[in-house]
């Protein structure tokens, strides 16, 4: 009987360890705890070029993450990308004239949307659109321009 008991306890511990691993992976490793919350409000912004921005990329203000990209669309009328972001509801006092830029963290790191607050007294609401945007800096273009200007400088 004691042997059967040992077996049962061991199997119980094994299954518990497996479930604990799943819990750890879900909560600590994956984005389940971040995206799973459906709270917050949506704002959109139009960019000429979003480069490598993807759904679930972070949205930051002053370097602090306040939301995530929830949808990326292409608008065939204006030939622009429409990026919808979900902002956590605790940050509901962002000025209406806030501007959005796409930056890269590190040289080849992931891309994110950075919001810069304006001075308006009205606040962004669900469905608002950010009017001031700055597109992503594309590395190849920058290098191209840099080399081009370098060439110009040599001529002088």
């Amino acid at each position: 009987m004691t042997h059967a008991r040992t077996v049962e306890i061991a199997v119980g511990a094994f299954v518990a360890a497996g479930l604990a691993a799943l819990f750890l992976l879900a909560m600590k490793v994956s984005n389940l705890n971040v995206v799973g919350s459906d709270e917050g409000y949506h704002v959109s912004a139009r960019f000429d070029n979003i480069s490598g921005l993807r759904v679930r990329s972070p949205v930051t203000m002053a370097g602090v993450r306040i939301g995530r990209v929830s949808e990326i669309r292409f608008d065939p009328n204006t030939y622009q990308a429409v990026v919808t972001m979900r902002i956590s509801e605790q940050y509901d006092q962002l000025p209406l004239d806030t501007s959005a830029s796409i930056y890269t963290s590190g040289l080849i790191g992931e891309q994110y949307v950075s919001l810069d607050p304006g001075g308006d007294f009205e606040f962004l609401q669900d469905g608002s659109e950010l009017m001031l945007t700055q597109s992503a800096l594309v590395l190849e273009q920058m290098i191209g321009q840099f080399l081009f200007s370098l060439g110009d400088g040599d001529k002088d």
């Binding site: 992976l25 879900a26 490793v29 984005n31 705890n33 679930r56 972070p58 992931e110």
Partner: peptide, 19 residues
Amino acid sequence: FWSQMQANVDMREDIWNGI
């Protein structure tokens, strides 16, 4: 280390498919 991991690991896409 942890925040980048959380930003890029998807519950359904990565963990569930692994299971």
